[in-house]
Nucleic acid binder design. Structure first.
Lengths: 124, 124, 124, 124
DNA sequence: GTGGTCTAGACCACA
DNA sequence: GTGGTCTAGACCACA
């Protein structure tokens, strides 16, 4: 369900929080849905429960998640239901920019970069 | 010359090191070229000199940079001169994968994602 | 500077956060002021550094504190400078209500309760 | 009869226990009086029965309550019957202290604080 | 079963 | 020096 990479330099709890934000924005998890338990996720990704908990707490403060004592974390009611695809694209903007910067520094042509993305999309 | 983002969660020295690696791989900086001084870069990006220094030292250990007493850091002789574009593409692989994961979580269609990248490339 | 009570049932990090909020609201700590370091507070109150850190992080997310890497936590610019005394009183409302409930349950007369508060104020 | 606040950070069972202690100290519930059943209270406050039960058990251990098989919890004989108002005031001491600390941190004058308490007492 | 709090302690990033 | 991240593990509150 989630992809966590301890080597990436980005704190694990932030990776997780960002992915949950995206799946909510994308509608794959909706209001009322329950998230996997802290322990479950911790085991699955061989990570300390507190690390998962930190991500959940962060999203609770943001208002994306709701905690009901003794029960799994739940997705809160969203201010904006059904974001349009254009709105969701905003989330990708920083990553797209980083990608373009990297490609330029590697002197990779636009054509090759686009082809490369197209290939990756086709293969998954 | 370089783009450093203190908010990204990725350590600044790693951002810098990665960008230097890419520009060497891309041929924009070549064997014998000199890098900006630690102080110069530190000032330019409002960052502590030690942070820049750490990136340089990291690349020195990797063998990408050479330090000559009292002179600016220099690009070392590369094992592989003139990487082909295909080889350079490898550097982008992790970022492309992250991008695709993010797009899938946001339920953004392949078509829209490709168009979005195309737009960004065209506009810069 | 702060009063932390591990027995009270209220999480220590929440006690600390609430006290910082109050001192900012009361103007005793102002924009730009630096807070004691995590380690210093932890030592002083015989508490784990992470507990202090948790309070600071909470207030950072709230926007009350700003973190500058490698430097002490700073009070952020306040939306509302110079709250009036009436506005600051709002912070006390829950505590006053609890006090009144407790006094009623103890069958303590209004007169005695007021006298008791007056005495305590006079003696400190 | 009781006021329970799940948001306060103080465990619910401790809130309940403290309130029962106060009402006994204040003489509003006396030796031999029966408390509401666990189920009744749990329903009324939308709380898990085990939470109520934990408060009752705590007070049973303290000797404040007595459990008779199949009957409602009963108030035990009190060592000190008819506490004087001065003695009962002791129960309020911690709360009064917290209130004064909070007021000082908010830079609220003694006069305003007393007036505020007087208002609240008058209005209820 | 659920999540929360806290500790002791290691190590990292940055000034 | 500053704060941040993470682990291993204990214990708590609540369903």
């Amino acid at each position: 369900m989630f992809t966590l990479n301890p080597q990436s330099g980005i704190p694990i709890y932030r990776q997780l929080a960002e992915q949950i934000r995206r799946m909510v924005a994308g509608g794959q998890i909706k209001e009322g849905d329950e998230l996997p338990s802290v322990r479950e996720l911790a085991l699955e990704h061989a990570v300390n429960p507190m690390t998962i908990s930190k991500a959940y707490s962060l999203l609770e403060v943001e208002g994306l998640l709701i905690r009901h004592r003794g029960k799994p974390m739940q997705i809160a009611r969203q201010n904006k239901q059904n974001n349009s695809e254009q709105e969701r694209l905003q989330h990708l903007h920083p990553q797209l920019e980083q990608l373009v910067i990297a490609a330029r520094q590697l002197e990779i042509s636009d054509k090759v970069l686009l082809a490369s993305l197209r290939d990756m999309l086709a293969s998954e």
